[in-house]
Design a protein around this nucleic acid. Structure first.
Lengths: 342, 342
DNA sequence: ATGAAAGCGCTAACAC
DNA sequence: GTGTTAGCGCTTTCAT
């Protein structure tokens, strides 16, 4: 059984007034010193700082933000999942950048469900955050209304969004898919398939597939078959997705996967079944996964900078908060890297 | 250039008073209704709710928490990294659970540096959170003081901690290592090595290695060599860590890795060099990685429930916040799963 | 360079 | 079942 009891710590230490008293100045002077807003002498500053240390003063941002509203340093970040290499990297990168700038990150996980995002946002807004970072482009209408009503900066990440709510940072997924389609066609592949996750209400990620199909159609060799799993992306999903697809269409000569995890799963399936890659079947992924570096064959994939997205999203948000000029739309470049699997 | 300007939205909508006016009641009645704390009639409730919807009222938790202090629903969670499968899973699991209970998660990433944790905590406490979840057991003395002074519930996660600051949820890493040591010895291995990451100031994860060594020594076949990398855990780190270790000690007959990522990296190194696993070299990891399911050989590893840690940590924290009785120390069980690599 | 007064939006405590 | 009063700890505004 636990020892301490959480009896409401009505006072958890000193407050401004007590510091002020101890230092023989007014609350305002202490406040100015803490915010370094000028209007105090160096002597007073030192005396006050000494008392702050001595009394172990921890400022109360609740009161500060409540009292000024403009002073909020809270930023809400909502991602589809944390447990996904790519989103996890973006989240971490955002948090690191915001932390450096003195903001704190309040997270949300929405599972790509607009309703969950909405519920989360409603809760978030009650904390009067300085800004929000959302993933994807499809939001519920209530979400849109809430954002409009509060008028705080909003950064939409992940998908390229040419008409963002406010500002947006992401990849051009359509082009990624299109480029890979052209690449595979260029390599002489004619009977191509796709393995990915069945998109839910939101479309995160499925746009690459559209670009891919477009490229194939334009080249006169439309997509032969695709396997959309009701699962989340994983190595194993790629493994059995490939199995499913090939059992339906055994004579494909290439497969494009939603991401590298799934592509690697596919690669292992081929290895298990003695399917020659790339001789018999080409394999291509997306994301530039670190694991690919240790595979016997380097994976053909599109390298992306999730760090870039996170960092820029955070920086853009900070710029908006400081009313500095900033771009509306940032497209983070990606790079198709031919490997040994296609 | 961005369109909207973030001109301080001094009022971002209606407040309690306006709802009260519109509904022809007092602020208190509205407050009671919103918190469902009784003391109002069903009629009034409906009338008030209608106004709330109509005016798009978003409660101000800043004011609420500030005014009551006990009402905080903010929880700080600090992890070493988000970009690590295991920690990411714990974080996500914590957030999901807290969200269900109506709390919001404020995150921190400390890179296993106590100073960063301390800096983060100082910032967090200024938001007067209801509780904190920290990773690991080593905290700076200032961190300890801050926590003692605030007296909010603290949950320490990841490592088994028999004398936690408050409560603790984690794995018994020592036993994991010890068990694997005994297992490998039992399989006839005599010249064992270890590949992991050089522990920094904090010890997260290195305790498994201690348990492992203890088991080997007890059996009379002490650890032959270990390779501690100045890097972060990854497939590739496991790959070249194995290369380094074997170049120093070529006649090892088994290697224990810090985690599955690294073990899989090692497995691929062996494959590339035609080292027979497990004939010539046994390989064992820790963590129960999903990727292991698609490998040609199932990896010998210890399965752990990161979800369990996250969920229980959050639940314990909630119990503490509600002053419900709860355990001080929770050890989440792990299970050694023999595979085909050892 | 410093201070005094008012007020942010809510809840606790106490009326009625 | 409902209202009134006071106050949480800061910042803003205006004096001095």
């Amino acid at each position: 059984m636990s020892k301490k009891t959480s009896k409401s710590p009505r006072k958890l230490g000193a407050n401004l007034a007590q510091i002020a008293d101890a230092a023989g100045v007014s609350k305002m002077t202490v406040s100015r010193i803490l915010r370094d807003s000028g209007g105090f002498s160096e002597e007073t500053r030192e005396r006050v700082m000494r008392e702050i240390d001595r009394l172990g003063y921890v400022p109360n941002r609740l009161a500060a933000t409540f009292g000024s509203e403009a002073a909020s340093t809270l930023v809400g970040v909502c991602v589809p999942r944390v447990t996904s290499r790519l989103y996890g990297e973006v989240l971490e990168s955002i948090d690191r950048t915001l932390f450096r700038f003195g903001y704190q990150t309040m997270i949300g996980v929405n599972d790509e469900l607009p309703d969950v995002e909405e519920k989360w946002l409603r809760g978030l807004l009650s904390w009067r955050p300085a800004g929000v970072i959302l993933s994807g482009r499809s939001h519920s209408s209530a979400t849109l209304e809430l954002l409009k009503a509060t008028s705080i900066p909003v950064v939409e990440i992940w998908d390229l969004n040419t008409s963002p709510l406010d500002v947006s940072v992401g990849f051009n997924h359509f082009d990624c898919g299109h480029e890979m389609g052209q690449f595979l066609i260029g390599r002489g592949r004619r009977r191509l398939g796709y393995v990915g996750i069945q998109p839910s209400t939101t479309t995160m990620g499925s746009i690459r597939s559209e670009g891919f199909q477009k490229a194939l159609s334009s080249a006169g060799h439309p997509l032969v078959a695709s396997e959309l799993l009701h699962d989340k992306s994983s190595f194993y999903a790629g493994y059995y997705g490939t199995e499913n697809l090939l059992s339906r269409e055994s004579n494909l000569d290439g497969i494009y996967y939603q991401d590298d995890e799934m592509a690697i799963g596919g690669l292992f399936f081929c290895q298990a079944r003695n399917i020659d890659v790339p001789g018999q079947l080409a394999i291509a992924g997306w994301g530039g996964m670190e694991a690919a570096s240790i595979l016997p064959q380097r994976l053909t994939t599109t390298m992306v900078s999730t760090q870039g997205v996170g960092k820029q999203a955070a920086e853009l948000l900070v710029a908006r908060l400081r009313d500095e000029p900033c771009k509306d739309v940032v497209v983070v470049p990606t790079r198709l890297v031919p490997g040994a699997t296609a």
